[in-house]
Amino acid sequence: MVAELNRLLTVKEILPSQPHHLEVHIGLNRSGHSFVHRQYATYPFRVSRALRLDPGDTDRTYLYMMNSSPGLLAGDALRLRVTLDQKTRLYLTDQSATKAHAMAEGQRAEMHYAFEVKAGAILEFIPEPLILYRDADFSQTTQITLDPTGSLVLSEILVPGRLARGEFYQFHRYFNRMQVNTPDGELVFADTMHLSGQQNRFAASPLFAMMPILANLIVILPEVHLQSLSAALMAIPPKPECSIALSRLPNCNGLVIRAMAKSVPILKTYIHHALITIRHLSNQPTLPEIPK
């Protein structure tokens, strides 16, 4: 019976089986250091060389994704795949905020991420914010195949317009689906958001979002005591201009942190402190400065 259910719950990979615009495969060398075993990038992406930002943490590779286009444009359908072999460690980020530009009605841009985190591997994916410009229509899927002994820290920050110029929820639509599966394909959890822009009757309501900028942090650490981690993450000094809460994820040893704030730096600072806390509690070397 359970086997039958598992088969039915096996969710088909949500990414189309088309060529990827960026592929990175992290391997482990004989010294136990993570390195870029294989990489491929085509327009608009490039990947930095493998960096060792912390000389005391040679096990981990730091990589920057670079996008040479002005941002997400109508008709874009970008696909990225990152694979972490057993026991590898990767900190992945990008250089600057992703801008979803104006699109004609009926057109949209898509971005599809596929991550595979094998046994004992640790992925930290901390991208810069996504800004939804007026008339943008953007759909993003993130498919993560996570070994039960693999670790994941993933953040996302969403800015609903160019706020400084008064642009607020003027985009058409934003869709975001993150799905974590076991290597057998069983669904661990999914977090799906469908955000209307111009048609959003609740956009201005403080009951929808008291502050304009939204963020999520997903933390899955199979060997960490979640209660201690929760307490430590909630002890990070709160700022008056932000609201943060966390909860335990289903079917795994992980947490989801939801946050909203009046400005991006507040959320970036919180995520930075959260990463330091996570590394400390999971006995990993401390987070070095990530130059941008």
Binding site: V11, R177, T192, M193, H194, L195, P206, L207, F208, A209, M210, L214, S243, I244, A245, L246, S247, R258, A259, M260
Partner: peptide, 17 residues
Amino acid sequence: LSEMWSCTPAIDIAQMS
């Protein structure tokens, strides 16, 4: 079933806390 979603950021935070 595959298209279930939710989007209630402030209520999520209220429930979590």
